[in-house]
Amino acid sequence: MQMSTRTGQEMDQQLIEQCKRGNAFAQKRLFDQYANRLFRVSLRYVRNESDAEEVLMNGFMKVFRSISNFAYRDDNGLEAWLRRIIVNEALQYLRANRSLPLFQSEETAGIQPDSNPLPDMGLDAERIYALIRELPTGYRTVFNLYAIEGYTHREIAEQLSISENTSKSQLSKARALLQQWLTNYGYEATRRTS
């Protein structure tokens, strides 16, 4: 098991080296390995699918342009680096399309998901993913950055050009709305996690 992990790491390292040399085959392999996962990341920030594809493309262009500066340590490091680039690209896209900041005008009262996401499925990962995508842009962005990517409020404030207090309030509102939707689906988050 340990042997196979090491071989996989060596292969990934070689893949990165080949990408640094501009090998198109290696670039395609790296893209295939992470495209779906990173498309989901992009779609969590940018609701529209074609916009998310654009974010993904631009993100991978940046990846291949700056891969010579990347020092491979392990797979987690590689994926974290790729995610960071995609997230930055998504934030840039939101800023360029004036989707941010939308925090002041949004009201939590009465917000419901646009459609009942995946009604035939149970409350599994896909449904939670769909509910996050249904959050308003401001809530969704702060919740994604804080709860999933692990940014601090200060970092979020810098990224979105807002105050830390705004970030905190947006996060608490996002949590409350998500909790409400989940409760409507019959889920108690506190009981499940404890």
């Binding site: 295939d32 998310a52 990962a125 896909e126 804080y146 709860a147 988050a189 996690t193």
Partner: peptide
């Protein structure tokens, strides 16, 4: 972390390595 954050993060880690259901994404 709030319990909700933890649970959401864990749920998203369990997502399959495919596009979301109903998506027309073609890598």
């Amino acid at each position: 972390d709030e319990p909700l954050d933890q649970w959401v993060r864990q749920a998203l880690n369990d997502l399959p390595d495919t596009p979301p259901p109903g998506s027309a994404f073609n890598a």
